[in-house]
């Protein structure tokens, strides 16, 4: 029994049941009416919220990368694809610049053919840009540009958005050639699983900020094979 005398065992139990959402609608109404009038009861509820929340300490699961743009658009009321407004515009603030690692593209000679572990068809909604991507177990990303290309005087930059990460990581500027193979740094390979590949319109040489600055032209979830 509590020494404070401001609440009793029944209050302790009912406050816990309230936080656990075990009460019926009627009981909730009665309890909430008391809550409004009794500060000690409110403290009891806070105690339970606090104490029980630690039960979820081990609970964590990264949400898919595609969710953040959706939430951002819903929260800020922006149309995600309107010209000039990048869904990743907030990144320009440099907030997560520290998290962005830029991987350099370099051509590697075709090696022995091994079946890819991941693939994606990165396509614009209207089909104006289509790039097939396949990642080999050795970390070689094979890109075939089937449709479209960079706008005049502009470049295409490839991005990887790891599952749950709101910030895309640059995989580099797409070379002019239609069929290229690039090496993906080992640290980034795991992020292909559940990740998203996207291509944005950037100034020649790629984004000056390390985050996408132009329109997102095409995006696709990566399929694990």
């Amino acid at each position: 029994m509590s020494e404070q005398a401001t609440y009793d065992e029944d209050d302790i139990a009912v406050a816990g049941e309230y936080v656990l959402r075990l009460l019926s609608a009627e009981e909730v109404a009665t309890f909430e009416a008391r809550l409004a009038a009794e500060p000690a009861l409110r403290d009891l509820v806070t105690d339970w919220q606090e104490g029980l929340a630690t039960l979820a300490d081990e609970v964590a699961e990264a949400p898919p990368a595609a969710l953040w743009p959706r939430i951002e658009a819903a929260a800020f009321g922006e149309a995600p694809r309107r010209a000039g407004i990048s869904p990743w515009r907030w990144l320009a603030g440099g907030l997560v610049a520290a998290l962005i690692a830029v991987a350099l593209f370099f051509a590697i000679p075709p090696g022995p053919v091994t079946p890819p572990t991941h693939q994606a068809q990165i396509a614009a909604e209207d089909g104006s840009l289509v790039v097939q991507a396949a990642l080999s177990p050795e970390g070689e990303l094979h890109l075939i540009r089937e449709q479209g290309g960079a706008r005049p005087g502009r470049a295409l930059e490839l991005w990887l958005i790891a599952e749950g990460a709101p910030a895309p990581v640059s995989l580099g500027v797409l070379p002019e050639a239609e069929d290229v193979r690039i090496a993906v740094p080992e640290a980034l390979r795991a992020s292909f699983t559940g990740g998203t590949l996207a291509i944005s319109d950037e100034p020649p040489g790629g984004s000056p900020t390390g985050a996408p600055t132009g329109d997102v032209l095409a995006a696709a979830p990566v399929q694990t094979l």
């Binding site: 979820a56 609970v59 964590a60 699961e61 990264a62 949400p63 969710l67 953040w68 939430i71 951002e72 907030w90 907030l95 997560v96 749950g164 990460a165 709101p166 910030a167």
Partner: peptide
């Protein structure tokens, strides 16, 4: 954005 980054895994879980 920072809050989402810091807490979304827990809340999604």
């Amino acid at each position: 954005a920072a809050l989402y980054q810091a807490t979304s895994s827990k809340l999604f879980g």
